[in-house]
Amino acid sequence: MQTISWDEFTKVDLRVGRVLSAEVFHQARKPAYVLQVDFGEEIGIRKSSAQITHLYKPEELVGKLVVAVVNFPKKQIGPLMSECLVTGFHNADGEVALCVPDKPVPLGMKLL
């Protein structure tokens, strides 16, 4: 495993957001949803493509707090311009489980 410095780690801006909407991303090559995530007043609402269809239904995602990288450049994914990267972990079957806070925290709060 490669180590990084504290300064390198602090460059990654991981924030808490709330999923406002989740819709099937029909044009994606792999099954995915288009998420609208609210990061509060400072950052606002951002879109993301998330390959989380195996473990989550769209209606289960609405209102869920998620952790996302908000300082990557925008990325074109088919017709969608993704504006953040929602984080998660692969389970034993390769399906993505979201990285989520286990207690309520304010929108836009930065991971320490």
Rank of each mutant, 00 (worst) to 15 (best):
R46F: 15
G108A: 15
R15Q: 03
P79G: 03
K110H: 05
V96E: 07
A97K: 11
Q36T: 04
G44W: 00
A97P: 07
P106Q: 08
E8R: 15
E42V: 05
D38N: 13
E8C: 08
S48Y: 02
N91F: 15
A50V: 04
Y56T: 01
V34I: 09
V69A: 08
A28P: 01
Q27S: 14
K57Q: 13
C99S: 14
E59K: 15
V12I: 10
N71L: 06
A97N: 12
L112Q: 05
V62F: 09
C84E: 01
L107W: 05
R46C: 06
F9H: 05
H90E: 12
V12D: 07
V24R: 04
K47Y: 12
V37S: 02
D38E: 12
F72A: 13
R18K: 14
V69L: 15
Q36N: 15
E59L: 11
V96D: 03
E42S: 15
T10C: 08
K57L: 05
D13W: 10
E59N: 05
H26Q: 08
N71P: 07
K64M: 07
K103T: 11
A97F: 11
S49A: 14
E23K: 07
H54K: 08
K57F: 13
M81I: 10
L35E: 05
P73I: 06
K47R: 06
L61H: 11
Q27G: 03
M1V: 14
A50Y: 01
D102Y: 09
A22T: 00
K11S: 06
M81C: 09
G108M: 12
S21K: 02
I45E: 06
S21C: 08
I45Q: 05
G40W: 01
I43M: 10
P31L: 11
M1P: 12
N91T: 05
V34T: 09
E59P: 09
T87C: 10
G78L: 02
R18G: 03
A28E: 00
T3E: 07
V19M: 02
L107P: 10
F39I: 03
H90Q: 06
L20M: 12
L14P: 02
P58H: 01
K30W: 02
K110I: 06
G94Y: 09
Q36I: 06
V105A: 10
G44C: 02
T87P: 02
L20D: 13
P104G: 14
P79L: 04
K57V: 14
P79T: 08
T10Q: 10
P101D: 14
E83Y: 03
V12P: 08
K74F: 10
K57S: 11
D93G: 07
L14S: 06
K74W: 13
Q27F: 04
W6Q: 09
Y56G: 00
A97S: 12
T53R: 07
F9Y: 12
V66N: 00
Q36E: 12
S49Y: 01
